[in-house]
Every structure is written in C-alpha cells, then in structure tokens.
Amino acid sequence: MAKLPKASIQNRIRALRFEHGEMTQQALADQIGVTRQTVNAIEGNKYSPSLEVAFRIAKVFDRPLEEVFQYAAGEGG
C-alpha cells in the first residue's frame, strides 16, 4: 500500500490578528467560541480545527477560508 505523504495545514492567523488591530488570542477565541489554548494550538499548527471553526475564524477576519488556511502537502507528496 502506498504511503500517504505527510501533510499539514498552515495558517496566517497571527498575521491577520496583527492586521486587525493586534487582536489578542483571547479576543479571537471569544469570538469563535473556543478556548485561548485552542487558538494558540491552531496558530502553532499543532491542531487542525474543524471546518466550522475554520469558517468562523475566516469570518472574523472577513477573508476567504483559503486566505487564512493553506493546505501544504509534505515532501514526497
């Protein structure tokens, strides 16, 4: 069986927070209904959010989803 390439979802939430008046992680977390720990984990690419949360984040920043999150296939993919 062929081995699936390692893939990850990158994001630019931190940059977008900066562009939105240096929004804090807590403020973003409150707006999308998750904990600050979750926002931190998403920003650090340690956790991939559900589609619903991803859309909520994109809505907060008023950007299309693909501008906030990027799918990056790893080497060998």
Partner: peptide, 10 residues
C-alpha cells in the same frame, strides 16, 4: 513555499 507561513507577504 507551501510549508512556510505567508506572514512575510506583508
């Protein structure tokens, strides 16, 4: 550049 953040686009 798929693996890097786009922060430096600004």
């Amino acid at each position: 550049m798929g693996g890097t953040s786009k922060i430096f686009d600004i």
